[in-house]
Simulated scan of single mutants.
Amino acid sequence: MSDPVEMGCELLENCEDDSLELSEAVDRLETITTDPHLTREILDTAEKRGIIAREDGLIRPKRSTFVSFESEVVTKEGDFTCRRCGAGLSTGHFIRFESGEHGPFGSSCIRKVTGRE
Rank of each mutant, 00 (worst) to 15 (best):
P4C: 03
E6K: 14
G8H: 05
C9G: 03
E10W: 06
C15W: 08
E16P: 10
E16R: 11
D17G: 03
D17N: 14
D17T: 03
D18R: 15
S19N: 15
L22S: 07
S23W: 13
S23M: 12
S23I: 06
E24I: 00
V26S: 06
D27L: 13
D27K: 08
D27T: 08
R28W: 10
L29F: 02
T34K: 10
D35F: 06
P36F: 08
R40F: 14
I42T: 07
I42Q: 01
A46W: 03
A46M: 07
K48H: 04
K48M: 15
I51D: 01
I52E: 00
A53Y: 09
E55I: 08
G57I: 05
L58G: 04
I59L: 04
P61N: 00
T65P: 00
F66Q: 13
V67Q: 05
V67P: 02
V67A: 01
V67N: 02
S68K: 06
F69V: 09
S71I: 02
E72M: 12
V73E: 09
V73C: 10
T75G: 08
G78M: 05
G78E: 15
D79K: 08
D79P: 00
C82K: 00
R84V: 01
A87E: 15
G88Q: 07
G88I: 05
G92K: 08
G92V: 11
H93Y: 15
F94G: 07
S99Q: 05
E101C: 03
G103K: 04
P104S: 08
F105R: 04
G106A: 12
K112P: 00
T114W: 04
G115E: 02
G115N: 01
R116S: 12
E117Y: 08
E117F: 10
E117L: 04
